[in-house]
Structure formats: structure tokens, C-alpha cells
Computed example of a mutant assay.
Amino acid sequence: MRKSLVALSVLAATALPTVVSAADYSDDIHKNDYSWSQFNIMYVVDEKGAGAESNHDYLEMEFGGRSGIFDLYGYVDVFNLTSDPDSDKAGAEKIFMKFAPRMSLDAMTGKDLSFGPVQELYVSTLMEWGGNSGVNTQKIGLGSDIMVPWFGKMGLNLYGTYDSNTKDWNGGQISTNWFKPFHFFDNGSFISYQGYIDYQFGMNDDESYQSSTGGAMFNGIYWHSDRFAVGYGLKLYDNVYGFKDGEALPWAPKAESSGAAHYVSVTYKF
């Protein structure tokens, strides 16, 4: 699981199309439509979170696209594929899901709301489900696509967070994500720098193991062809999900929620 936002949003490391001009819905609301999906076989070393760090494999079904007013990113992670009893995920929740639909304010109003580096504005949402004992949050706020030197188009979203486990609002999150091809080969394949930052703030910190802030940054270097991708990602954590690193937890000896983790992946694109 990409423990943060783990937003990108949105969002996560993926081969999203690059759009360099302001959105235009003046003649056809579906003129910008597209869709994509891919399967990623992943292995992570030293993943951080609300407990001991973890090494494990998983399958990630990742998808996204655009249809009219809707922009969508999402994934479903399935852990411990062989049900290995020695896996760090043995006995844990088997599935984690994230869905991040955004609704274009430009498309809904029929107006060009771009200004400066901002290409498009959205009502942005993010939903995370981790089973009965996992992360279960819903986020809503204002989203945007912005143009940044060298990077090109990046997503930037600001959310308020509702925690379904505690039935209460719990702080906010700012997320950004990027996909930057930077070296192209003669056969059409390329190398990209892709990743995201999720930073949470204003969270409840009444308990000794809780932090008011936390977050993660994913930095991935990937080789892409039309059908395949292979990559490595370095993920940096700081009190991720608001669990204070090194503090004892009611359900675990202590939180190992800060530091670095390593991700390797092989992808097939549909």
C-alpha cells in the first residue's frame, strides 16, 4: 500500500497524459476524454506505518482517465499474493483501495477558470479504504492542475479529512503529483521521474502516539515502453498518517512511521 497521501492523489506514480494548455469545454464536454489502466507487481522494503516496518509483495491494479466533468485516479492493492504465512502481511488486511475522483469546475460552469500557472480547477475528493482495522478516510476540497517549470503539468489538491473510524473530521491534507519524462530513446521508450507528496496537518494529537502533522514523498525513476514499465521508488516518511515515530501504540510495540522505504515494480499497461 502507498502509505501516505499516501495523494495524489493523487495521486501515485503512473503514466498520465501531459496536457499543457488550459481546459476548453466550449464546444464538446467530452473532447478531452481518455482512459488508461495497468497492473503493477510490487515489492517494498522497510515500508513505514502504524506499527513495525514491513517488507512484502503486492499486486496493484491502477487506473484513471477523464469523462466529461470527471477526472479519476484510483488503485486496488492486493497483499501477500501467495498467502505466505511468513510474510509481514500474513494475517493482515488483504486489500487496500484508493479512489480520487475530481469534478472540473471549468466543465461544470462552462467557463475558463485558468489563471497564471493554474490550468484547471476541481472539486477534489479522495477516498481510502483499508478494511476494518486499517485507514478509512474520505477527503474533500479544492483541486487544480498547475504548470510548473521543467515538470510541466502537476496536480495540486487541498482537502479536509473525515475519519470513518473515529466518525469525526481530523485535519487536512495537501497533495501534489507529477510525471516527467526526461530521457527518450530511439525506439520510443523513455525514462521518467514520477511521484507525489502528501502532507497532513492539523490532526488530533491528544494521545502520546499521535502527531498533528505527517506525510510522505515518493520519488520514482521508471523506464516506459508502450506496454511495459520497470521502476524503482524511494519513499520518504515523516510521522506518516499522524503516528509519532518511536512511540508505543495500543496495538503494536511502537510506531515505525518515519524514514525511508524502497519500492520496485514491473508493470503491464492495457
Results as ranks from 00 to 15, higher is better:
3 K>S: 10
4 S>I: 12
4 S>P: 13
5 L>F: 05
6 V>N: 01
6 V>R: 01
7 A>V: 10
10 V>R: 06
13 A>Q: 01
20 V>E: 09
23 A>M: 02
24 D>F: 05
25 Y>D: 05
27 D>C: 01
30 H>F: 10
31 K>Q: 05
31 K>C: 03
35 S>R: 13
35 S>A: 15
36 W>K: 15
36 W>T: 14
36 W>M: 15
36 W>S: 15
38 Q>K: 15
38 Q>A: 15
38 Q>T: 13
39 F>M: 14
40 N>H: 14
41 I>E: 08
41 I>C: 05
41 I>Q: 11
44 V>F: 02
47 E>L: 08
48 K>N: 01
52 A>E: 08
52 A>G: 10
53 E>I: 06
54 S>W: 01
54 S>H: 03
57 D>W: 12
57 D>P: 15
57 D>C: 12
57 D>Q: 15
58 Y>P: 10
59 L>R: 07
61 M>C: 06
62 E>N: 05
64 G>I: 06
65 G>A: 04
65 G>V: 08
67 S>D: 07
68 G>D: 08
70 F>G: 04
74 G>W: 09
77 D>S: 08
79 F>V: 06
82 T>I: 08
83 S>H: 08
86 D>L: 11
90 A>C: 00
91 G>K: 08
91 G>T: 09
92 A>G: 07
92 A>K: 12
92 A>C: 00
93 E>M: 10
93 E>G: 13
94 K>G: 14
95 I>L: 11
96 F>Q: 14
97 M>Y: 13
102 R>E: 12
105 L>Q: 09
106 D>P: 02
110 G>M: 06
111 K>D: 11
111 K>Q: 14
114 S>W: 05
116 G>Y: 03
118 V>Q: 04
119 Q>G: 09
119 Q>C: 03
120 E>Y: 10
120 E>I: 09
121 L>P: 10
122 Y>S: 11
123 V>A: 14
125 T>R: 01
126 L>A: 10
127 M>W: 10
131 G>C: 07
136 N>I: 11
137 T>I: 14
139 K>V: 09
142 L>A: 07
144 S>L: 00
144 S>V: 02
147 M>Q: 08
147 M>T: 08
158 L>T: 09
161 T>V: 12
165 N>Q: 15
167 K>L: 12
168 D>H: 10
169 W>L: 11
173 Q>P: 02
175 S>Y: 00
177 N>Q: 02
178 W>N: 03
180 K>E: 00
181 P>E: 00
182 F>N: 02
183 H>K: 08
184 F>C: 07
185 F>T: 11
188 G>E: 04
190 F>I: 08
192 S>T: 14
195 G>A: 09
195 G>K: 04
196 Y>H: 07
196 Y>N: 08
198 D>F: 03
199 Y>M: 01
205 D>R: 02
205 D>Q: 07
206 D>H: 05
208 S>H: 15
210 Q>G: 07
214 G>D: 12
214 G>R: 13
217 M>E: 02
225 S>K: 06
225 S>C: 04
228 F>M: 04
228 F>C: 00
230 V>W: 01
231 G>K: 00
234 L>E: 04
234 L>C: 05
235 K>S: 06
237 Y>S: 09
239 N>A: 03
243 F>P: 00
246 G>W: 02
247 E>F: 03
249 L>G: 02
256 E>A: 01
258 S>I: 00
259 G>M: 06
261 A>L: 02
265 S>W: 05
265 S>M: 13
267 T>G: 12
270 F>W: 15
